[in-house]
Simulated scan of single mutants.
Amino acid sequence: MKYITDINELDLNGTYTYADYLTWRFEQSVELIKGKIFKMSPAPSRKHQKISFNLSGIFYNQLKGKSCRAFAAPFDVRLLDKKKSLKANTEIYTVVQPDICVICDKSKLDERGCIGAPDLIIEILSPGNSKKEMRTKYALYEESGVKEYWVLYPSEHVLQQYILNENEKYELKNNFAEDEVFNSHIFADLQIDLSEIFEEEEL
């Protein structure tokens, strides 16, 4: 197997599969969306990392002893095209790394990450996240059947909660501000105080 050690060796307008992705050994972090390369933002800010850590702690405590598992980035999620994709690496064209995801079907997990749609995906926005990137991921997660999707805005201390309806389309269930408490839609007993997520630490 030939490894690619420099992203400049790739045609950024080309189409690639998960099999190609496994040969990449360059420093630039990328995601693969429908065969196209999306460069990820540089290392997340301290605030971004703090929010991710707080959420991970909440999910660790909430899911302890249960069948569902939470994972934080970097963690590869291979999403399947419902019409085309098989599970062969050469037939998978999408590999993303959500900030946090929750998977309840253990058959979707292997040593390389998750294959198939997680039950819940959480993305924490960074200054480097473009509107195009977020629109692309919104459509991708909806199409892939991710049941619940949260988007967090660290600067505004706001969380948007999207729910997949019976027509397999996302609906914005609510916008929550930093001092509110809310429940997950698919995990009815999961209640989160946003002040715990967005807490600021003194330097």
Rank of each mutant, 00 (worst) to 15 (best):
L152E: 01
E143I: 09
L55A: 03
L32T: 06
N167A: 12
K64L: 14
K173L: 09
S126Y: 06
F176N: 05
S126M: 04
P74G: 02
A117S: 05
E200S: 15
S107H: 10
E91L: 10
P127C: 03
L194M: 12
E171A: 11
F176E: 02
A19L: 10
I121M: 04
S41D: 09
S29H: 11
A177F: 15
E123R: 01
K82V: 04
Y93V: 12
E171L: 11
I122G: 00
D99A: 06
G35C: 13
N89P: 09
R25N: 09
V158E: 08
T90L: 12
E196W: 09
W24H: 04
L22N: 07
K87P: 08
R135Q: 15
L86C: 14
W150M: 03
T94D: 11
D189K: 03
T23R: 12
M134Y: 11
D105F: 00
N8E: 11
N8D: 10
L63G: 01
K132L: 15
K169M: 13
K36G: 13
E91G: 10
K34S: 15
Q97R: 04
T94S: 12
K137F: 14
N175K: 13
F187E: 00
Q49V: 08
V95F: 03
I197G: 07
P118V: 04
P154C: 11
I186E: 03
L12G: 08
L159A: 09
A139D: 15
L120K: 00
G57A: 07
G145A: 02
L63P: 02
E148K: 00
S41R: 08
G113Y: 04
S52D: 08
K173D: 10
I4R: 02
D6K: 06
S126E: 04
H157Y: 15
L32Q: 05
K2H: 12
A88P: 07
E166M: 10
I163N: 01
I163R: 04
C68Q: 02
A19V: 07
S144N: 05
D110S: 06
Y21R: 03
D11V: 11
Q28K: 14
S195K: 15
I192K: 00
W24R: 05
R135Y: 15
D193K: 12
E9Q: 13
